[in-house]
């Protein structure tokens, strides 16, 4: 039972001048929506490309329902990676590209793909090379949603999409999830837009996995404590401090509680919960004092 899903085990990827991933281990279970977050260059795309067998790890292994994913066509047919890279020949018409997807994945929901194309106002008689950045993303999103893969990975899915199209995509994604109960993994910088959709979040920082948690649990741990510096420091004693802010004599401290609960604050202290984006920024910030030193 514990082997079900995709298990990433101690994956490392070294380039000549950089360790892109350093021993990352995580699991994707069936039927969940995951967020994969990290700053630019943190290693998110590297990880997704390794899962999709587009590049190979320096060490480590990935299994699909307990069987290695490497060169495992049957398992790879259950994984779809939508990414910035354009894998399609510029001269091919969009309709034809649907067929190619069907050939690789064994089936393809043409009706659904056409419905989506109408909603996004995408003309399927066009050639891929003629599409704008936004419509390239839209086309790839449609292919991903209409593919039969049980695990669909989105690497920057809304690149170049306007607010209306982003909204439409999120609705269609949730609708698709409610109907198919597949696993979706979303890697994006627009954290606020996906925060409520995502059940579990992974945060990668400089090639290392620093957060592997249910969103609700993670958010119950992060607080901003404000007051005078002396008061805040007394109150925050023993807590894990992520960062702080100074605004005149007002002092703010970002803390992560672990599994403790926040002690009742005295009158001179205010506490507030953080949303996913603010917590992410604090967790992945480079220590400014370290840079100044």
């Amino acid at each position: 039972m514990t082997n079900v899903g995709i298990q990433v085990k101690q994956i490392s990827k070294h380039y000549r001048h950089k360790d892109a991933l350093k021993g990352v281990s995580l699991n994707f279970a069936p039927g969940k929506i995951y967020g994969l977050l990290g700053r630019n260059g943190a290693g998110k795309s590297t990880l997704l490309n390794i899962i999709a067998n587009r590049i190979f790890p320096s060490s480590g292994d990935i299994t699909f329902d307990g069987v290695t994913l490497n060169n495992n066509d049957q398992a790879l047919g259950q994984c779809y990676l939508m990414s910035e890279v354009n894998l399609y020949p510029d001269g091919d018409r969009l309709e034809r590209l649907f067929k190619n997807t069907e050939l690789f994945y064994g089936s393809f929901d043409y009706d659904y793909a056409h419905r989506l194309a109408r909603k996004f106002e995408l003309d399927l008689h066009q050639k891929f090379g003629k599409l704008s950045t936004g419509y390239r993303s839209i086309f790839k999103l449609i292919v991903a949603l209409a593919s039969p893969a049980r695990y669909v990975f989105f690497d920057e899915p809304v690149l170049g999409l306007d607010a209306n199209h982003r909204e439409l995509f999120y609705r269609e994604l949730v609708d698709n999830y409610a109907k198919t109960n597949r696993t979706f993994v979303i890697s994006t910088h627009l954290i606020e837009e996906i925060a409520a959709m995502v059940e579990h979040v992974f945060i990668i920082k400089s090639g290392e996995l620093i957060v592997d948690d249910e969103v609700e649990h993670l958010l119950s741990q992060g607080y901003l404590i404000t007051g005078t510096k002396a008061d805040v420091q007394v109150y925050c004693q023993g807590m894990k401090v992520l960062g702080h802010e100074n605004l005149g004599s007002l002092y703010g401290c970002y803390v992560l509680l672990g599994d403790d609960t926040l002690p009742t604050p005295p009158a001179n202290i205010t506490t507030e919960r953080l949303d996913l984006q603010r917590l992410f920024v604090q967790l992945t910030n480079i220590d400014e004092e370290e840079l100044d030193a």
Partner: peptide, 9 residues
Amino acid sequence: KYFHINPAT
């Protein structure tokens, strides 16, 4: 669907 919230939530 309307608010992009996970159905489990």
